Simulated scan of single mutants.
Amino acid sequence: MPRYEYRCRTCGDTFELSRPMAQSSAPANCPAGHDDTVKLLSTVAVGGSAPTPAASPRATGGGGCCGGGCCG
């Protein structure tokens, strides 16, 4: 079951709740009993040792797809 992080606007406490994805937007009370909370965006760091892909000749022209001509 996914864990979601919330912050209480009343006391500033940050807490986590495990709940189904279908209930991710449901209101949450903080552990102190306050009901003015907001769901936080969480970042997920995934570690590993996957090899770094080599740069293609098109992508080395500077700028990548933002004007570097790698698309097409």
Rank of each mutant, 00 (worst) to 15 (best):
V38C: 10
G68Y: 04
S18M: 02
C30G: 14
A22I: 02
T37I: 10
H34P: 08
S56P: 09
Y6T: 04
R7C: 10
A32C: 04
A55S: 11
L40F: 08
G48N: 05
G72V: 02
A32F: 01
V38W: 09
R9G: 03
Q23C: 11
C66H: 07
P2F: 07
D35S: 14
C8G: 05
G33P: 00
R3H: 12
D36Y: 06
G47T: 15
N29G: 10
P31N: 04
T14K: 14
Q23I: 02
P57G: 00
R3D: 14
K39P: 13
G48Y: 05
G47H: 14
A59T: 12
N29H: 09
T37R: 04
G64W: 10
P27E: 12
T37V: 13
P2M: 08
S24L: 01
R19F: 02
G69V: 00
R58H: 07
P31T: 00
P27K: 04
C8M: 03
V46F: 09
S25N: 11
G67M: 02
S24V: 01
P57L: 02
A28C: 05
D36H: 11
A22S: 06
L40I: 07
E16K: 12
G33M: 00
A28R: 06
T14R: 15
T43H: 10
C71F: 08
S24N: 01
Y6F: 14
G62C: 09
S24I: 00
D35V: 07
P31K: 06
N29S: 14
T60H: 04
E5Q: 13
G61D: 01
E16D: 13
S56N: 13
T14I: 12
S42Q: 15
V44C: 14
V44Y: 15
M1L: 08
G47Y: 14
G72E: 12
G64S: 13
G48R: 03
G61A: 05
N29E: 10
T43Y: 10
A50W: 10
L40Y: 06
V46R: 08
M21P: 06
P2V: 11
K39D: 07
A54V: 15
P57Q: 01
G68E: 05
P20A: 14
G72F: 08
C11T: 12
G72R: 11
E16R: 12
A32I: 00
P31L: 03
P20N: 09
D13E: 12
G68M: 04
N29L: 09
C8Y: 05
L17A: 07
L40P: 08
A59G: 02
A26C: 02
S24T: 00
P53I: 05
V38H: 11
A22H: 02
S18H: 05
P53E: 05
A28P: 00
A26F: 03
Y4A: 09
V46E: 15
G67W: 01
C11I: 11
